[in-house]
């Protein structure tokens, strides 16, 4: 079985995939608990506009996608402060980002083929630059989450009490959304824009359902996400199926298994 690791592209796929899995599954726990599971999906579609803009302007597409995604995350936070419902704010930017991507792609006379890896993921073709970006930016994102972990937990559990304890809730919420934007863009290359939200939402949903503590939920989410990456890559190698699709199929199977696994919230 270990012959899979003799190929450099597979080594990169495992390294990049598992790092992206750790990122998505960690940020996913915070987003799902705040009932923002579709936030990742919204940002992924906005990033599509960013990728198209990058391809058109001939700059590194992940960089332009990151800029679009961070601006969108801050805009969603501002719209929420203006009393626009969170799901409505995501829906508006979601449509705009997707439409922008389509308009830019059609105006350029076609770089449709270049967009495909971002839509469906190209985990088996992760470049050294992509891997380096995931290691550096992803590592920084995880470090930021670890640094503000207690305050983020308090603000997620009981926002009003956290505010009463002097925790800067608005700034922490903005930080979380920006970290989510970075996570979405980095994961795009692994599972693709269309599948990023399942990568964020499914492991977290399984973990929240089965865990008795927050640290347990974070660990379970990370294990489910990483195991699904490994399962998807093995399926891609041995059965010749799409790696991104196989990863999400593995996540869906894990979710189904979690439904059978037992009652939620066991004391």
């Amino acid at each position: 079985m270990l012959d899979i690791f003799q190929y450099a592209f597979m080594q990169k796929a495992f390294a990049g995939g598992i790092l992206a899995a750790l990122l998505c599954s960690t940020i996913g726990v915070f987003l799902v608990l705040r009932r923002m599971a579709l936030f990742g999906d919204g940002l992924a579609h906005i990033s599509f506009g960013g990728v198209a803009a990058g391809l058109l302007l001939k700059i590194y597409p992940l960089a332009s996608a990151l800029a679009f995604s961070v601006i969108a995350a801050i805009s969603i936070q501002k719209l929420k402060q203006m009393k626009i419902r969170g799901d409505s704010a995501i829906a508006v930017l979601f449509s705009f980002g997707l439409a922008l991507g389509v308009v830019l792609a059609s105006a350029s006379g076609g770089f449709g083929a270049d967009l495909m890896p971002y839509l469906f993921g190209s985990i088996l073709a992760i470049s050294d630059a992509d891997l380096l970006a995931i290691i550096l930016i992803g590592g920084t994102t995880l470090a930021a989450l670890a640094s503000f972990y207690r305050q983020l937990l308090y603000a997620s559990f009981d926002e009003e009490s956290a505010r009463a304890s002097g925790i800067p809730v608005e700034r922490l919420n903005a930080l979380l959304l920006v970290l989510a934007a970075i996570t979405v863009v980095l994961s795009m290359k692994v599972v693709g824009i269309l599948l990023v939200s399942s990568f964020i939402a499914i492991p977290a949903t399984i973990a929240i359902r089965l865990s008795k503590s927050f640290t347990q939920a974070l660990a379970a989410s990370a294990i489910v996400a990483s195991a699904s990456v490994a399962a998807g890559l093995l399926a891609a190698y041995y059965f010749g199926v799409s790696a991104g699709g196989a990863i999400v199929m593995a996540l869906a199977l894990a979710f189904a298994a979690s439904l059978l696994a037992g009652k939620e919230g066991n004391p």
């Binding site: 503000f148 304890s165 002097g166 929240i208």
Partner: peptide, 25 residues
């Protein structure tokens, strides 16, 4: 005031109160 399905242990909830005394990092 909180989600009854929130995955937090009793110790973790009580620890949140300590956050007000602790610096951000």
């Amino acid at each position: 005031g909180f989600d009854q399905d929130f995955p937090a242990s009793v110790f973790e909830v009580a620890s949140m109160g300590r956050s007000a005394k602790m610096g951000l990092l």
